[in-house]
Design a protein around this nucleic acid. Structure first.
Lengths: 112, 112
DNA sequence: CCTTTGTTGAAGTTTTCACTTCAGTATTTG
DNA sequence: CAAATACTGAAGTGAAAACTTCAACAAAGG
């Protein structure tokens, strides 16, 4: 995968995670798969709105869906979560690496 | 910390991460601390805009800043990243736990 | 078959958000 | 001290995003 495509995926994932409703949907789906109407039940918003959120989650790769009959069943796609996690871990890694370098520098410079 | 406050922090962090520019700022800061004007340099947008992004990052807990003289120096606050990571890991954990339960169920039901 | 259920597309509305400009403040530098 | 630098607050603009309603449609159930 080239860099732009990767960035576009990261962008889609973090954009999707940026919304409270979509995160609530993911929390629900992390327990077990559910139909769109089941996902919509706890919310004070229209079914159509929840359906749109599901589409965004699916396009981002955080959720996979399958339609059987008239019911669309949704489940977590762990790949999407992994992508977000990787990005975060990489930032943390670089940041901590910097501390290590700093410590080494101080050790060399002032060995008592 | 109560649940609402935790949710509010999670919300602020993921909202902050939802923007490409802010993620780029974090990428820059993961290498080393920088002043607001340094952060702004690579972008085709006003200094004020970048300053606003920094404020959002700071309120979310992803970045810590300190003003000395007229320069505000920014650095990563790893706590914010940890919070995001914890949320993601918890979803992954629950999701995988579900697979384990399913496997156990199948083992019991059809022990060959 | 008729009705209900579950979803989807399209179009319109409202809210949120990123960004701009500009004025104002504090700090440094020549 | 004057000029340049580094922000910062406020107010406004435009676009994106969330949400609504309504119409259409296919699949199930009675």
């Amino acid at each position: 995968m080239n860099a732009e495509a990767h960035d576009a995926r990261v962008d889609a994932v973090f954009h999707a995670l940026g919304d409270v409703t979509r995160r609530a949907i993911l929390e629900r789906l992390s327990r077990q798969p559910a139909a769109v109407s089941e996902l919509a039940a706890p919310f004070a918003m229209s079914l159509a709105a929840v359906g749109q959120h599901v589409q965004i989650l699916e396009r981002s790769g955080l959720v996979r869906t399958e339609k059987s009959g008239r019911v669309r069943t949704c489940q977590i796609d762990p790949e999407g979560l992994s992508l977000a996690r990787q990005w975060i871990d990489e930032r943390k890694r670089l940041w901590e690496q910097r501390f290590d370098r700093l410590a080494n520098f101080l050790d060399e410079d002032e060995p008592e």
